[in-house]
Deep mutational scan, measured.
Amino acid sequence: NKASVVANQLIPINTALTLIMMKAEVVTPMGIPAEEIPKLVGMQVNRAVPLGTTLMPDKVKNYE
């Protein structure tokens, strides 16, 4: 099972992601793969992401 990116804290809307905000966890359904964490640093979320929520591609601005 592959790990996904999960919010390590509440991430407010329009916040630029940092390493400390994210952790890798095996979750269902799968979100953004954990190996993409370095790519996500500096990207902004387009909505608030509660603690423990899986980061889905549609929650990150300009994620492809």
Rank of each mutant, 00 (worst) to 15 (best):
D58R: 01
M43R: 08
T15R: 03
V5I: 14
P12F: 07
L10F: 15
A48L: 11
T18A: 09
V60Y: 00
V49D: 06
L40R: 00
V49G: 02
T18F: 06
V5Y: 02
M21W: 04
E35V: 13
M56L: 08
I32E: 02
K39R: 14
S4V: 00
V60S: 04
I13H: 06
T54S: 03
T18W: 04
K23Q: 08
N8S: 14
V5L: 04
E36Q: 11
L40K: 02
N1T: 14
K61Y: 10
K59F: 15
V27N: 01
V41D: 02
A16Q: 12
A16I: 14
V27Q: 02
A7T: 06
L10I: 07
K23I: 10
T54Q: 00
L17D: 07
P57Q: 03
M56N: 06
K61V: 14
E64C: 15
V26Q: 09
M22S: 04
V27D: 01
Q9N: 04
A3S: 09
M56V: 06
L51I: 13
A48R: 11
M22C: 07
A7M: 04
V5R: 01
G52A: 01
T53S: 14
E36A: 10
Q9K: 09
L51A: 15
K39A: 11
Y63A: 03
N14G: 10
V27A: 04
L40E: 02
E36G: 03
P29Y: 03
E25N: 07
T15I: 09
A34Y: 04
P33E: 05
E25P: 00
A7L: 02
G31M: 01
M30L: 12
N1A: 14
A24D: 07
N8M: 09
G52P: 03
K23G: 09
N14I: 06
A16P: 13
S4L: 02
Y63L: 06
K61G: 04
E36H: 11
V60N: 01
E36Y: 11
E64T: 14
E35R: 11
N1Q: 15
V49K: 04
T15F: 07
T54A: 07
K39G: 09
E64M: 13
A7C: 06
T28K: 11
T18L: 08
